[in-house]
Nucleic acid binder design. Structure first.
Length: 268
DNA sequence: CTCAGTGTTCAGTG
DNA sequence: TCACTGAACACTGA
């Protein structure tokens, strides 16, 4: 479930587990889809013997800072993840790369569906794909004036704009729906028709939702019961939110979208 | 067996 | 050229 909070949680977990340690061995699985623009053995060669200095993130992109460049970058797609463990027998199915650190910790990237990517970059924030991203709502949430100016130029449904990584990097399907639900804005509303008050609510809810999700380490059990998140999965017929109001499902911005008519007024 | 899916890209349209 | 839409991608699991 890799949207911004999940990627940030993975970043912190790996940082805590392996920061300051040397990569003594790298194992890889050949995969010409997941490794983009680089072969698996070239990644292994670049990482072997290096020391992990830290990890940075922008949107859903995560990269390791090493004592020598280039650095490895990870995007999780729909099903990618970084696993931390100590025993070789715990290596996950569908793994693509495993780093063995000098203190015995292992970090593996796994991706069953292979929509994720492993890349090598000399300057991750200065080169695509990261250089093409919009703001990261946790790292640098812009002020209200920026939101107003940007949304006034967009004719697409607000849901589609929130999913656009060149606008808000890291926002994915559930966060977009959650923000619109809490801001009481219908997902099909054209972005350029939102009022100043609606945009202010949108920005505030985006801030509060990603901040909270990151704070609790993306642990869904610690998401407030008032969040739509808990009730939206499975498109169950008769699904209702935390106050028993029916949930609608549809396709907006090319993605399954959940909203509550009683809360989010339809576009006129 | 069929289909949906927490993401991104690219071809096609207006 | 730009903004936007929808299909495609690859695979698992319901």
């Amino acid at each position: 479930m890799p949207e911004l909070p999940e990627v940030e949680t993975a970043r912190r977990d790996v940082e805590r587990a392996a920061c300051g340690h040397r990569i003594s061995r790298v194992s890889t699985v050949d995969d010409t889809i997941v490794y983009e623009g680089v072969r698996a053995d070239a990644v292994a060669a670049a990482l072997t013997g290096r020391t992990l200095v830290g990890l940075d993130r922008h949107g859903k992109h995560l990269w390791m800072k090493l004592d020598r460049r280039p650095w490895p970058m990870f995007h999780f797609g729909m099903t990618g993840w970084l696993h931390v463990y100590r025993e070789e027998k715990d290596r996950p199915r569908f793994w693509k790369i495993e780093l063995l650190f000098d203190h015995g910790v292992r970090v593996a990237y796994r991706d069953p569906r292979r929509l994720g990517r492993i890349r090598l970059r000399h300057d991750p924030p200065g080169e695509p794909p990261v250089s093409e991203l919009g703001f990261d709502p946790v790292l640098n949430l812009p002020g209200l004036a920026f939101f107003k100016a940007q949304l006034a130029r967009r004719k697409a449904p607000i849901k589609a704009v929130l999913l656009d990584q060149s606008f808000s990097a890291g926002v994915g399907n559930w966060i977009a729906d959650e923000v619109l639900y809490q801001a009481r804005i219908h997902p099909a509303r054209r972005a350029d028709t939102l009022s100043g008050a609606e945009i202010a609510r949108l920005r505030a809810k985006l801030d509060c939702i990603v901040t909270h999700a990151v704070k609790v380490g993306s642990d869904e059990a610690h998401f407030p019961r008032t969040w739509l998140f808990h009730y939206r999965w499975g498109k169950t017929k008769g699904a209702v939110d935390g106050r028993c109001r029916p949930i609608s499902f549809g396709q907006i911005g090319g993605r399954t979208t959940a909203w509550v008519e009683a809360v989010q007024a339809r576009p006129r």
